[in-house]
Design a protein around this nucleic acid. Structure first.
Lengths: 118, 118
DNA sequence: GTATGTGTATTGATATACTAATACACCGTG
DNA sequence: CACGGTGTATTAGTATATCAATACACATAC
């Protein structure tokens, strides 16, 4: 898995789980790059993607900040459900393929939720 | 999304949902290729991947057949749950990001399951 | 054996993705 | 203004993925 994607997933998980809250600052591109021994541009790609997804806001000259979630919550409930649907489908198909029962699959999701929410 | 991946997902969904049962035959590489106007090798790539995943068995000279699920169900329940976990996590993170509640996310999974299982 | 069906190894062309190097634009502070 | 901090546009190199063309191996029916 590409480096920048790993960074994106990591930050998204932190924000979704509430460990990073709106207004919190994120380490600078150069800090992360130096710590991981990678190119600043690679980190910038990740940060840009997070901004495009509405997870981060950029404050030029200062750094990047976790965005208020209001923007991301736009759209009706049905629309938002439709957006998650493909990902859920993928997990369901794989689960059934492995011989898991519907109840077992739902248990897995429950565990995942409990781990992410405080 | 690449052509061969679409084929893989489609067949996997059919098998997971029980619309294709063990022993059923799958259209030949050339049939599918002709029907879709693509190269037989592209279909073969998809079929090969499905074989690697244990979804299909190949019967050289005859065609490919839906495999008995015994092989795929190997492993303890915990192991199989661990395998689905990353996919579930991905869906959960995205769902929370969209502002869905845990209950709403579980409802989406329930819908997905009901649609797939007869 | 011949014919016709199956899937596929090999190769090559093309496109896309990923990372890195460089140089630049912006912002706050002294 | 100069300086040190931010993020990034641009460019280029490399790797990987995808698709297609060809030729081949295997299996069955005749």
């Amino acid at each position: 898995m590409p480096i920048y994607r790993q960074l994106v997933d990591q930050v998204e998980a932190l924000v979704a789980g509430g460990r990073l809250r709106p207004g919190d600052t994120v380490p600078s591109v150069r800090q992360v790059a130096a710590a991981l021994g990678i190119n600043p541009m690679t980190v910038s790609k990740a940060w840009s993607r997070l901004e495009a997804d509405g997870v981060l806001d950029r404050d030029r000259g200062r750094g990047m900040v976790v965005a208020v979630p209001r923007d991301r919550e736009a759209g009706s409930l049905a629309e938002r459900k439709a957006q998650v649907r493909p990902l859920v489908d993928q997990a369901v198909v794989r689960g059934l393929q492995l011989g898991l029962t519907p109840a077992q699959l739902q248990a897995v999701m429950k565990t995942s939720l409990e781990e992410k929410l405080p």
